[in-house]
Design a protein around this nucleic acid. Sequence first.
DNA 1: CCGGCTACTTCCACTGAATGGAAGACACTG
DNA 2: CAGTGTCTTCCATTCAGTGGAAGTAGCCGG
Lengths: 270, 270
Amino acid sequence: MSGKPALKRANGPLTVVDDRSVAARLFALLDAFAAPAGATSLTLTLTALAERAGLPLSTTHRLVGELVGWGALTKQHNGQYSLGMKLWELGVQTPTAQNLRTIALPYLEDLYETTREHVHLAILDGRDALYLEKLSGHHAVRLTSRVGARLPLHSTGVGLVLLAHAPADVLQAYLATGLERFLPRTVTEPDAVRKRLAEIRLTGVARLSEEMTRGSSSIAAPIRDRTGRVVAAVSIVTRTTLIVDPEREYAVRLAAQGVSRALGYRRAQQ
Amino acid sequence: MSGKPALKRANGPLTVVDDRSVAARLFALLDAFAAPAGATSLTLTLTALAERAGLPLSTTHRLVGELVGWGALTKQHNGQYSLGMKLWELGVQTPTAQNLRTIALPYLEDLYETTREHVHLAILDGRDALYLEKLSGHHAVRLTSRVGARLPLHSTGVGLVLLAHAPADVLQAYLATGLERFLPRTVTEPDAVRKRLAEIRLTGVARLSEEMTRGSSSIAAPIRDRTGRVVAAVSIVTRTTLIVDPEREYAVRLAAQGVSRALGYRRAQQ
DNA sequence: CCGGCTACTTCCACTGAATGGAAGACACTG
DNA sequence: CAGTGTCTTCCATTCAGTGGAAGTAGCCGG
């Protein structure tokens, strides 16, 4: 691979920091493990890793050695490498994740108990909805989401809620890039999306059917912090039915309000 | 491997890999954020960070710049640094955590629902019980545990279960170091611990009262994978009462069995 | 308004840590 | 047992990283 500049990452969040710096190489190695979509966590051989990170084998070997020594990677019995516990340990200490999760979890559990459906908690990160938490029972519908997943803003319940309350420039930028159509019913036309967002702001809930995963629908509501800013969104994902039942919507609203209140939000204004 | 410098692996939090290497410096910076016990996630100024990591300020400045660029650290409005979302994102993809959690969560939820108590899921990592998951309602007792926390093996329910099924050498090594007494009732005498572990192996449950946190008791049971090896432990932590109630113990057992079965364990032998 | 303090940022000449090609070890496989 | 793919080690070369020092920004008290 001569192509001297920049690593050629294909899919996913490519954060080239500086390239050439040792740090950047280490990051490239870790990024090589970023799982694509809803896939299971990767496991790579040294050679595969070197290739994905765009580094010479011997360099990879040495750096991987350091990463393993620290615990960021683990070498399994079969010689494959995977992300290590140390990374998990540090990761769960990240303030945003840690705090929001801790505060929200009890309410999410309540929501799960009353509805028995998948419960999601997500925040806006860049151009994606980043799933912080997901509860689901033994049966519920199969889904692409998982904790740590990034899903599009325009085709998920939490995504639309987050988008509805995002700063104008973020919305602008998001709509500017073409929106992918996952299923026939996915709304991708910018103006239609804007209209939809206005309604979501008005009613305080988002409802979607068959826009991301066949056979499933979603109801989502915003979570606000003490300043009133929308910082996250909760949703439930249910099997699509024709009946619109207001009870579930109420349950989602209730959960969102509970978390907001726990974050210090008092619906003051007006 | 001449016995020269560094390479100080111990799997405690302070993992000096080689020192001098760029990687080691980066790791030191990240390690500086490792929260002590049950504390909230740290937030540090550049200077504090430099100090904790034992690096010159200018070096710290540059490296921190790279870490922020990649997303491992975040600079907050007030100029303080904290762990960043990228780290969380990678962390939750760690196979052990990811898989166990995904499989176990539904059972933990059931357990929470029937008991309304703190529910813990932990694995053995080094000399500690590492808490992978924690569910707790709005009320339950206040505790030191949290997801990502490390607590001692001899004074927690999950810890004792894990220790009871640990390889002989691990147990040996653990008992060799003096065990800390947290409360008057903490069992710290090696032989007493061994006896206790034998009982836990026999009955399949661990019960503790007032050994770690004042006012709380715990019931824990082992989780096995398809090979029959104990890979994790579940527990509930309740307010201490005088009544030993068998229902809760049954619920914990049930949850542990559920997860074990989901992991492919068939209680074959005997 | 200023001087003094602390905390952060930038600069750059020097140097030793990191590099990577190549060769050696290992492990399958047919 | 040669053949192929993968991993590990070595070491001369050099360029990325270093860190002392100087510059900048922000804050406080007088």
